[in-house]
Design a protein around this nucleic acid. Structure first.
Lengths: 333, 333
DNA sequence: GACGGGGTTGCAAGCGTTTACTGAATTTTT
DNA sequence: AAAAATTCAGTAAACGCTTGCAACCCCGTC
């Protein structure tokens, strides 16, 4: 004897009204006499009725669920964004289907399809590189999509981020101002626009403005991970650089730890600025000076933007650029 | 002119078969002649048909979606579990609805209800304390539930974790062996069974076996956060403790950083063992010795267990206890 | 006291699939 | 070669809810 799930019919019967009426009170439709509403509400409460969201979704063509594609929840950068996303999603009564992609375009396409099959009302994409396949899916689908913390040269979909060019330029300038003639740029793959186009450009601009020549051997392309940083420091040091901009916090901590392990004093002998201002920057010793992009807010704003799109409200701008700061800590003079 | 979404009917018509047949091929039902299957598949491909998961869910009463309640994605401990969960979920064709609860029982109940309304096939709960409200919802619902990385004295639902008593006992013993007469235990709220019952018990057992008296003033109850650790170190030091067991990695890093900031040498003057072996333990300097609970695996196994429950397979044990280790690093002698 | 209307409520048609059940076609038995 | 068993495919009834439309009730009006 399974406990029979109770439906809108059961409520209707018990309350002596039609299911349409029950549906109306459940949905807050004003066309219900207060007395009736009260009666129905009581029955709902008594029967512990809980509307079946799947049936609702089928009938209304809205699932109040959005898909979120994330490279890796375990990465603070993305989990911070995710937290912002989830909080405003909750605020607007949406739920989030979270799917890890490992930045693997095949998985991304795969995930994108199951998400669309599940009829999500919207989609938030995080990741540093939008492959052609993914881009194709984006333009084919008419589901609203917003990029969070990602840049995309062709602005097909919504997106929220900061001005990475300006941020890196400012950070680099700062390092130059404290006397560093050779500043290294250490980032993830240059194929990712955020690195290969934006950060690199900001870096070059700062150099140019300071009258310094651009030296390719000071640009290090690696994986954005702690271990990559740890392993790369020696080379960075060998290049003659006395300071570095890191494109990722874990990467920066790796660099920092390697410096410490090698007996290099930070910031005295080597200065370091990182990019994401996650908790890690505070936890490191010395604490890391960082470009402060408001991760949580980026996620939050992205989700907010998405709600507007799902609501078909007018959007003033499909891409929102949030402000950034540079938080000075102990890894710079 | 909106692009009309195409349904199973469209496919059926184009392929000159009934929708039932299309449904069969989509679901891999063997009762379809190969030739027919091929024909249908071609049409599906040509029309770019994608089965509507919501309709499927309604008809089949399965959503291939599981709910995951997490205190905070931003916390490495939980995000590591989440990653394990998502990976095996994906492996078994499930998706995950992720909801942050902030360990707030009101939010938890709230979330639990929307998750159940969405007809998730199963539920994974993370959190250190199961409030009575939540427990009540658990026993009322007939949806399979598994706790990941959480302990619950009354074993109503499935759960996957390690033997926290033994782990802390071993860690404490280790600290005692290296000569510490006064070992502090620094954890989150003692109201959480994992702290107030398990860890504390393990701690006491180690003390007892070493013939040391239990001293309440060496037990510190705080919030499991970096800042809490940072602020608490002075008190810990004042208590006379020369070593500590921390119940959380961020907390431990806080303690460690405060020690460094105060000029206390770790491990020479103060030894520290933490509990979760997240990436943080490697990133800290000195690196943190830690109880090594296999977070990813706990998540993975929890999800695996859940799939079995959803499948109504026989379960040998509702609660599985994974092994643990103690990874020695630089914060202990 | 018949009439016009707004406020309420019920009816019933979907929403896009799954899945008994049935029936026809084909193959296997005997 | 007829009977029995299989295979393959179609019919139609759910699944639980939303929603346009129609019907009804109750007032205030004239």
């Amino acid at each position: 004897m399974e406990k029979q799930t109770i439906t809108i019919y059961d409520v209707a019967r018990e309350a002596n009204v039609s299911m349409a009426t029950v549906s109306r009170v459940v949905n807050g439709n004003p066309n219900v006499k207060p007395a009736t509403r009260k009666k129905v509400l009581e029955v709902i409460d008594r029967l512990d009725y809980r509307p079946n969201a799947v049936a609702r979704g089928l009938a209304s063509k809205k699932t109040t669920t959005v898909g979120v594609i994330i490279p890796d929840v375990t990465n603070m950068f993305f989990s911070s964004l995710a937290r912002g996303i989830d909080d405003v999603a909750t605020m607007y009564k949406y739920n989030i289907i979270l799917a890890n992609s490992d930045e693997n375009s095949q998985k991304e396409v795969q995930v994108l399809n199951t998400l669309l099959a599940k009829q999500v009302d919207g989609l938030i994409y995080m990741g540093h590189e939008i492959s052609d396949n993914v881009r194709a899916e984006f333009s084919r689908s008419k589901t609203p999509i917003v990029l969070a913390g990602s840049v995309d040269p062709d602005e097909q979909v919504g997106s929220v981020n900061i001005d990475y060019v300006a941020a890196v330029e400012e950070a680099t300038a700062r390092l130059i101002k404290t006397g560093n003639k050779q500043v290294a740029l250490v980032t993830g793959p240059l194929t990712q626009p955020i690195n290969g186009e934006y950060r690199l450009q900001g870096y070059k601009q700062a150099l140019a403005k300071a009258g310094l020549a651009y030296d390719e051997s000071l640009v290090f392309e690696t994986e954005a991970s702690y271990h990559a940083g740890l392993g790369l420091f020696k080379q960075v040091q060998k290049s003659g650089a006395t300071a570095a901009i890191a494109g990722d916090d874990e990467l920066a901590v790796g660099l920092l730890d390697a410096a410490i392990d090698a007996g290099v004093k930070v910031p005295t002998d080597f200065e370091l600025i990182t990019s994401n201002n996650t908790k890690l920057t505070e936890m490191a010793r010395p604490q890391l000076t960082s470009i402060d992009q408001p991760l949580y807010d980026i996620g939050a704003v992205a989700m907010r933007l998405l709600t507007k799109m799902m609501n078909k409200e007018d959007i003033d701008a499909k891409t929102v650029r949030l402000g950034f700061d540079i938080t000075a800590r102990q890894s710079t003079k």
